[in-house]
Design a protein around this nucleic acid. Structure first.
Lengths: 216, 216
DNA sequence: GATAGTAGAAAGTGTCGCTATCCAATCTAA
DNA sequence: TTAGATTGGATAGCGACACTTTCTACTATC
């Protein structure tokens, strides 16, 4: 198919597709002549994946490029791809200067307690220290106490998430890795949304109020 | 204190404080003369809260303004404030045009099944439909099956979250509502981070691999 | 052979979150 | 008391980002 049809099928404007091509988010089509190229189903799929990560996950173009690099790496194991995807999805925490000693300790103890194998220089760990530091700055030093509850919940969710990924085992390698990316990015968003709904339900039950769910 | 000290105490540059004043994220200081104002502890606190929402939560200035509006509304109940905060934190989903009928059905059934009182026009519901639509577009129509696992986890987390908020009951009204905002914004981020750590742990255990946690 | 579509490059656009520059007034330290 | 720093307030500018627009030199198709 040509670029116009690719645009129609994916819902992405032609200039944006050209932009993604330039940025390396989409492999070039097969050139049939100096100014004609043919695109395939893979392009449609890839384009939808890019849009999902950008629109739903809020990833930057650079982060998407990193994720796609992991998917396209023929050397990468599933586990490694999962690591790369999660690293790309975890935003850098710019704030190490005003880092709190107690917060770092809270994070270290938490990770040890749960048996997570998260290095102190991994983005996830750094980000957690950042969150706890921020919590303490705004006067919530007990915030760290919630982490164990979160972890209990996440341990179970993680099992089911991984089940889901291995469920895709029938597909090609790339399809499975794509499942990892989709599961991570869409899963984060879905989890946050479900959390809101659950909080609202609990809040209503406890206060006896209801109705305002923030509809605009 | 004057603006220079406010800047030093909060770690926010003076021009940025002025910008936040202009944007209505920070109440004006008490004017002692036409070009001199005094700021208090409340300003330090508010400034740190703003930074937490912007840096950790990734909220836009406009969203922060909405949240703060809820905190400052003397009419608002805790439940209502929770609703407003969560609405402000939930990004609008721009994609209703290419909305999937099946996805909407999946979301509706999910909400009914869990007993959530989430209106079809609430941002959380719309966003969920958007996520499920996107999942189906990239070929993951079974993604919705994960939602119940997420909800099981979130129901328990929500209980503890609300416990935490009511724990703050000793504070002033504003402090408690601030706790809601902090818990929502920092909690979202913390939950996502813990989820990554848990996934990594499960992935390692299952594949027998280890080591790469995406450190950069 | 007229019209529409195409690849590729370059420059432009709009938004966002600050940042820099001014100014007149005021505080502050010598 | 006076020089220099700081302040509130207003306006303009900046850099990053994610596109969009415009252009040119083709090519496909009717």
């Amino acid at each position: 198919m040509r670029i116009a049809e690719l645009s129609r099928r994916s819902g992405v404007p032609v200039p944006t597709i050209k932009y993604y091509l330039r940025e390396g988010l989409l492999p070039a089509g097969e050139l049939t002549s100096p100014n004609q190229a043919r695109y395939g189903e893979g392009h449609v799929r890839r384009l939808r994946l890019v849009r999902a990560m950008v629109e739903v996950g809020g990833l930057s173009i650079a982060a998407v490029r990193e994720v796609l690099g992991a998917l396209d790496d023929p050397e990468g194991s599933m586990h490694k791809a999962l690591g790369t995807v999660e690293a790309a999805v975890t935003p850098e925490f710019p704030v190490q200067s005003r880092e709190d000693e107690v917060a770092r300790e809270q994070a270290t103890e938490f990770v040890a307690r749960r048996g997570y194998s998260c290095a102190p220089d991994s983005p996830a760990f750094q980000a957690l220290v950042g969150v706890l530091t921020t919590a303490r700055e705004v006067g919530h030093d007990r915030f760290a106490d919630l982490l164990d509850d979160y972890a209990d919940a996440c341990d179970r969710v993680a099992e089911r998430d991984l089940d889901y990924v291995f469920t895709l085992g029938a597909g090609t390698r790339e399809e499975v890795l794509e499942g990892v990316a989709v599961g991570t990015v869409l899963g984060d968003t879905a989890l946050a949304l479900v959390r809101r709904m659950a909080r609202q339900a609990v809040s209503e039950r406890r206060t006896g109020q209801s109705g305002d769910d923030g509809a605009r």
